[in-house]
């Protein structure tokens, strides 16, 4: 259960993360705005409530793991890591620039707090399965979290991994589907009929939960339920809005892989701040 205080704090974190995302993307001049903004509440709940992590000891063996399978949402992950204290805020300006640790897609060799290099779609869920198996084999109680895209789920390997997680009864794995309904070429139902992803994962044997991906209380309840579920992995279908929080980017496929220009960034920050914490 989220207390009002928790909720306020998380909403503030989410607001800060959205500002980080806009500022780093503007400074970079390129990158993925829409899908970074849509995962913010998921990231806020993981990094500021549920995940057992130590920013001062990023490789702490008993930590919970996170895999950003939809690696192009890297700014969303960097925003959370910076906000959690894994690296200084100043570094966000280096995103995508020569010599930076903040590569266009997450690089676990460079950035403290990143457990898996991702970016090539479809591979993260398999890696998360490997981590969950490894935790079990090591007798560790830690959990693995991963965030997938709905467009990403057109990759066949997602379904290979979906079978694997159920086969090995990976109840220490919680996955989120960032179901924002859009991919680069447009609507996910028009590009490749990604209809009813929840029913699909359910048919594969997953415990499937649904939440408004921007509603902290709903997401929190789903994550809690997943922790209590035994014998099967959990998929939280998070209905989200691509570009959430920025009016001109919301629900627009064109904002998949475009960074805001200076004037757009100013407007975006204003809107995000005005959105405030409910």
């Amino acid at each position: 259960m989220l207390t009002c205080e928790n909720e306020k704090e998380l909403a503030l974190r989410a607001r800060n993360m959205r500002c980080h995302i806009i500022r780093m993307l503007e400074a970079a001049g390129s990158g993925h705005t829409g899908g970074s903004l849509s995962i913010v509440e998921i990231m806020a709940l993981l990094y500021f409530k549920h995940m057992n992590i130590r920013p001062q000891e990023p490789r702490w063996p008993d930590r919970d793991r996170f895999v950003l399978s939809k690696g192009h949402a890297a700014p969303g992950l960097y925003a959370a890591l910076c906000e959690a204290g894994f690296f200084p805020e100043d570094e966000l300006k280096t995103l995508r620039k020569l010599g930076t640790r903040l590569q266009g897609h997450p690089d676990c060799k460079k950035v403290p707090g990143i457990d898996m290099s991702t970016g090539s779609l479809g591979q993260g869920l398999s890696a998360a399965n490997g981590m969950a198996l490894g935790l079990r084999l090591s007798g560790k109680a830690a959990r693995v979290y991963t965030t997938l895209g709905d467009g990403e789920s057109e990759e066949g390997q997602i379904w290979e991994a979906a079978m694997t997680a159920v086969h090995y009864k990976l109840d220490n794995l919680t996955a989120f589907l960032d179901h924002n309904g859009l991919q680069i070429d447009g609507d996910v139902t028009k590009v490749k009929s990604m209809l009813n992803p929840g029913a699909r994962f359910q048919a594969f044997g997953w415990n499937v939960l649904y939440a408004d991906g921007h509603n902290l209380r709903q997401l929190d309840a789903a994550i809690e339920l997943a922790k209590q579920t035994k014998g099967v992995p959990t998929m939280i279908i998070a209905k989200t809005i691509k570009g959430k929080g920025v009016s001109f980017a919301e629900d627009k496929a064109e904002w998949h892989g475009v960074a805001p220009k200076a004037d757009e960034a100013v407007q975006a920050i204003e809107e995000i701040m005005a959105g405030g914490c409910k």
Partner: peptide, 13 residues
Amino acid sequence: ANMVCMAAGLSTM
């Protein structure tokens, strides 16, 4: 493909 990425995950442990 799934096998290779599972191995990657296991190696991180």
